[in-house]
Write a protein that binds this DNA or RNA. Sequence first.
DNA 1: CTGTATCCTTATAGATACTG
DNA 2: CAGTATCTATAAGGATACAG
Lengths: 121, 121
Amino acid sequence: MNDVFLADCRARLAFDLMANTWNPVVLWALRDGALRPAELRRRLGGISTKVLTETVRRLEFNGLVSRRDCGRTAKVEYSLTDLGTSLLGPIEAFGEWAFRHGDEVMAAQDRVVGLVSGNEG
Amino acid sequence: MNDVFLADCRARLAFDLMANTWNPVVLWALRDGALRPAELRRRLGGISTKVLTETVRRLEFNGLVSRRDCGRTAKVEYSLTDLGTSLLGPIEAFGEWAFRHGDEVMAAQDRVVGLVSGNEG
DNA sequence: CTGTATCCTTATAGATACTG
DNA sequence: CAGTATCTATAAGGATACAG
């Protein structure tokens, strides 16, 4: 595990799965079991149907989520595959990091803003 | 740690730090100590000077990387702050996941492609 | 309720040339 | 060598209306 993380290596593959707004949050929302789209949307907050569909399609394409169509009408469920479940650990690591260090990030951002406005007076 | 990961919560903050192509790789490349921009570029592969500058500025803004200007001429070093260093653990978790499960992701992608071309014959 | 179709805005990234 | 300036292409995301 040395150059493993550099640009053209395998870790890119995992990073790319995290490199958008909704992928990690959707995976986390499905951690306790299958959800129907409407419920999924509710838990995610302000995601549009279009973006939700795009997101789950993307996750499905990568083998992390499976879509189950139960019946002819609008009854659908999304759930984690085993592969998707295996990603919950790393995702949680980030959540815990944010829990511990989120303040420091916001402080850093404020510091920059403070410098800017501070220079004026 | 229940709704901690949903859209408007703190974990967004950590996810956003990963939600682009270069942030995590740059942090990882700096894990062993300060690097000058040229060396950093070399290790990252195909990143342009423009994108590298944008990336380190972003990381600096969020308090993860510090820029040290040593002298009047073009002598600069980038290194991890303590905060940046604290992110190496979660990042490594993804790297290890990719190491173990990367094949499965690629297999899933191929499976979809296979279905498409398989339907033709 | 599920999903698609538009339209629009913005951020990312890459290529290239140039300045100090 | 470090960084900026353009220009371009693309994808993500959001708003809204509509279809099955």
